[in-house]
Simulated scan of single mutants.
Amino acid sequence: MTLRFSVLASGSTGNAFYVETEDQAFLVDAGLSGKQMEGLFASIDRELKNLTGILVTHEHSDHIKGLGVLARKYKLPIYANEKTWKAMDKLTGNIDTEQKFTFDMETVQSFGDLDIESFGVSHDAAEPMFYVFHHEDKKLALITDTGYVSDRMKGVIKNADAYVFESNHDVQMLRVGRYPWNIKRRILGDFGHVSNEDAAIAMSDVIGDRTKRIYLAHLSQDNNMKDLAKMSVTQTLEMKDMPVGEQFELLHTDPKVPTLLTEL
């Protein structure tokens, strides 16, 4: 039995993540149009109609843009906490009551051979939360959209086999960039997004002996670059005696091109 996943899309223009076992298949967020989501699924040779359900992290449009369309077209179960459901109410269009399920923060729900653990993050949404996937002896952690990584979060995600980890911006690029100051302040604040350096510092506290892959995710199109993010994270980790490319590797994600469907 295996755990497979793909980062379908990651960035400020839209986010979607796919995970499957032999028995279960989940989408986390649908932050692109319904048509784009169908294209992303086709590119990894999967079909939306076969999903067990969709997990929602929070109500921002780059995470739920296609949610209502997919829910209605494919009659899929949707899982979110109560505050997120309320915040999404006018953003998704009508979703049938029988498709709406509550997934409380800081809980574990079991779906056949897959256990899904939710945990809160620090972001300017109603009640944002992300997920850790447990399948037999494998652990996959998804964490983006947080202004910082607390000790509590680190405890939940520690020593995963693979991470999809926010590395949103280069602080200097953001400071000198075109964004108005109020947006810069939001991104840099405790309810914004973590920088390349802060992401690496958090990674250094959670990488364990089983960690093999770290995907740098939710990169800002205006305030970051793939090579810069990888270089910054690599430098910080190596300063902490964690050489990249030995025990674990750093991998890119993309706003439009899915990562390969990878088996843990």
Rank of each mutant, 00 (worst) to 15 (best):
157 I>D: 02
123 H>W: 10
133 F>W: 01
187 I>M: 10
245 G>S: 12
144 T>F: 12
126 A>D: 10
106 E>W: 14
140 L>P: 04
166 E>F: 01
222 D>V: 06
134 H>T: 03
207 I>F: 03
173 M>E: 10
204 S>M: 08
154 K>F: 06
208 G>C: 03
150 S>C: 00
136 E>H: 10
120 G>Y: 12
217 A>P: 04
178 R>S: 08
143 I>W: 10
210 R>A: 06
172 Q>E: 14
102 T>S: 15
223 N>K: 06
120 G>I: 12
106 E>Q: 07
125 A>K: 07
141 A>K: 03
106 E>I: 01
234 T>D: 11
200 A>N: 06
168 N>T: 13
143 I>A: 14
127 E>M: 13
155 G>Y: 03
229 A>Y: 10
152 R>A: 15
139 K>D: 11
127 E>G: 03
165 F>D: 01
234 T>R: 13
230 K>V: 13
186 R>Q: 07
241 D>E: 12
131 Y>P: 05
170 D>M: 08
213 R>K: 15
169 H>D: 01
247 Q>I: 01
187 I>K: 01
245 G>N: 14
132 V>F: 00
119 F>A: 05
242 M>W: 02
170 D>V: 07
114 L>P: 00
225 M>A: 15
131 Y>V: 07
159 N>Q: 04
119 F>K: 12
199 A>Q: 02
179 Y>P: 00
203 M>K: 06
168 N>E: 05
142 L>N: 08
225 M>W: 14
131 Y>E: 02
133 F>C: 07
